Computed example of a mutant assay.
Amino acid sequence: MSESFEDVSRWPVSRYFREVVAAQPDGRVLLAFGKLNIVVGCLLALWLLVAAPSSNLGGVHVVLLLGFPLVGFVWFLKDMPSPQLTAFEHIMRAPWQRKISVGLQIFVGLAPWAAIAKAVLR
C-alpha cells in the first residue's frame, strides 16, 4: 500500500521554512543568522544612503549581509533530503554530517561580520 505524499512544490515558502528548515539544527542556525544579517543589511543600506560616503563600510558590506543568507539557504537545500523524507533525516544524515552542516551555516552567517570587522578596524 503506497502512501500519497503532498506535493511540496505547492507549499508556500513560510510553510517550508516552518516545517522543514526550522525542524533541523542547521536550519535553525540559518534562520537566526539570516534574520539578523538581513535586518542589519537593510539598516546599513539606509545608513549609507543618509550618511556621508566617507566611512569604511560600503555597498559591498550590504551585499554581503543580504547575500549570504541566500548562500546559506542554497547550502541547506543541497544538504537536506526532500521534504517528504525529512522524517527520516536522522537516518539519512549521520551526526557528524549534521555537525558539519551546522558549522558551515555558522561560518556563512559570520562571514559578513568578519568583513565588517576588518573594514572598521582598518
Score class of each variant (00 low, 15 high):
residue 2 S to T: 10
residue 2 S to P: 08
residue 4 S to I: 14
residue 8 V to K: 05
residue 9 S to N: 11
residue 13 V to L: 14
residue 14 S to D: 12
residue 15 R to V: 11
residue 15 R to G: 10
residue 15 R to D: 13
residue 16 Y to W: 13
residue 20 V to S: 01
residue 20 V to W: 02
residue 21 V to G: 06
residue 26 D to K: 06
residue 26 D to S: 13
residue 27 G to K: 01
residue 29 V to R: 00
residue 35 K to F: 14
residue 37 N to L: 00
residue 38 I to Y: 01
residue 39 V to N: 02
residue 41 G to W: 05
residue 43 L to V: 12
residue 43 L to N: 06
residue 45 A to Q: 11
residue 47 W to A: 15
residue 48 L to M: 15
residue 51 A to M: 12
residue 52 A to H: 00
residue 53 P to H: 00
residue 56 N to V: 08
residue 58 G to S: 14
residue 60 V to Y: 07
residue 62 V to Y: 08
residue 63 V to G: 03
residue 63 V to L: 14
residue 64 L to K: 05
residue 69 P to E: 01
residue 71 V to D: 04
residue 71 V to L: 13
residue 71 V to E: 04
residue 72 G to P: 02
residue 75 W to I: 02
residue 80 M to C: 09
residue 81 P to R: 02
residue 84 Q to H: 09
residue 87 A to P: 01
residue 88 F to P: 02
residue 90 H to L: 05
residue 93 R to P: 01
residue 95 P to K: 05
residue 95 P to R: 03
residue 96 W to G: 04
residue 98 R to Q: 11
residue 99 K to W: 12
residue 100 I to R: 15
residue 103 G to H: 03
residue 104 L to W: 12
residue 107 F to C: 11
residue 108 V to W: 06
residue 111 A to L: 15
residue 115 A to T: 09
residue 122 R to C: 08
